[in-house]
Amino acid sequence: MRKLLACIALSSCLFLFGCGEPLKTDTSIIYTMDTIVSISMYNESDAATHFKKIKEIFYDVAKVSDDYKSGEDTISIYDLNKDREAIVSNTLLDLLREALNAYQNTNGYFNPFIGTLSHKWKDKIKNNEILEDSIINEELLKIENTSLSMDGNKVTINGYGNIDLGGISKGYATAKAKEYLESEGISSYYIDAGHSSIALGSKNGDYLNVGLSKPYSNGYICKIKEKNLVISCSSPQNQYIKIDNNYYHHLLNPFTGYPSNTFDSVFVLNNNPMEGDYYSTALFNMSYSDCVNYSKENNIKIILYKDNSILYKTEGVDIYE
């Protein structure tokens, strides 16, 4: 178990450290959405039942949000992108509605129609190449002219862009898992959704320590001691290439079509993993001034990190080495 948790630390923007007196701890680890998800509960008598339910939540969201393969017994984003119209499950319908809300709430900086452009960049990055401007411009035009229509559970893609829910799906699943635990009266827990977000309950009422990992290297930016909080992160982490001293990665600005590099990492601290997920994605794509102003206007607590330095943190966010 210790070796596996060490692997989580290396592949995540966030890492949980022990805090307080030893307790009976039950931990379950699953791999889904290209992420190691770790769920722990403290002094819980029926942990196995709760782990089963949380796994079902994550696997359901993973299946419908997959944009690389068919959902087989259900419609996935891959199926919807291919057929352009489908009767979708309630889970996917809700996820799409939340993605459209995120698009509106962030003034387009979170854009669910970036699918084809995202795939093309990922293919280029795998080959240590940069996507051509002509292709980027073609894809930006598609993105700009794509929308969704919904009639009950019938969803139609209008235009030629493809949907990508990568900036919200893990946060959505984590939010649903958090809601489930709290509906069951469980407050001593944490859910670590890898490089996306970590939802903290408490450790039998005590605080939990979370390390914010450095991008592009080992080590930690700082630590935060909190409870009953969600910390979400957007950072290239391990998915990038470096060409001519420039970083190219999967976090794309939907207005320029290029990877954003104003920040190396953006952390959002709130109580909703789904909102934290899409807020961190959107803020990562903004300029420094737009990011800070947007966070203030929307009362979002953030930490901005670039070139081995914390550029900005919201007043009242306490950190320590």
Rank of each mutant, 00 (worst) to 15 (best):
N153E: 03
K214E: 13
N298Y: 04
C222W: 05
L311I: 14
N128S: 04
Y190V: 06
Y103S: 05
K214A: 08
S217Q: 12
K296P: 03
N204P: 00
G159E: 02
A193P: 01
Y31E: 15
S187K: 09
K124S: 10
L14C: 09
V37I: 14
N105P: 07
N107M: 11
E179M: 10
I125H: 00
S149M: 14
K176W: 00
H195W: 08
F51W: 06
T35N: 04
D83C: 09
I191D: 00
N111P: 13
S197C: 15
A47L: 10
S134Y: 15
N209H: 08
Y216T: 02
N137K: 15
S76M: 02
I136C: 11
F255M: 06
Y220R: 03
K313H: 11
N272Y: 06
D277W: 06
I310E: 08
N162C: 07
N145A: 06
A48T: 15
G211A: 12
P254K: 09
K170N: 10
L95E: 07
I163N: 04
G166R: 01
V61C: 09
Y288C: 03
F113L: 09
T256H: 03
S147Q: 11
I157N: 05
Y312M: 01
T174V: 10
S45W: 05
N105D: 14
R2D: 13
D290E: 15
Y207W: 06
S89R: 03
I198R: 01
T27D: 05
M150W: 01
A48W: 13
F113E: 03
T106H: 10
L269E: 02
D277K: 05
G201A: 02
N272I: 07
S134I: 13
V155M: 04
A62W: 04
D66I: 02
G152E: 10
S213C: 12
Y312A: 02
M41W: 06
A99T: 07
D60E: 15
G20F: 01
N137I: 06
F267M: 11
G18R: 10
T262D: 11
E129I: 01
A193F: 00
K214M: 11
Y320T: 06
I30T: 06
I303W: 02
I302C: 08
S187Q: 11
G205C: 05
G166P: 02
I224P: 06
Y216R: 00
Y78R: 11
K225C: 11
I243H: 10
I243C: 13
A86S: 12
D67V: 01
M1A: 12
S235A: 13
I241E: 07
E275I: 10
D34F: 12
D206A: 08
E297R: 15
Y294N: 09
K154S: 13
I135P: 12
T116F: 09
R2F: 11
E182D: 01
S309F: 05
D123E: 13
D46Q: 15
Y42Q: 00
G205A: 04
D290Y: 06
K52R: 14
S289Y: 12
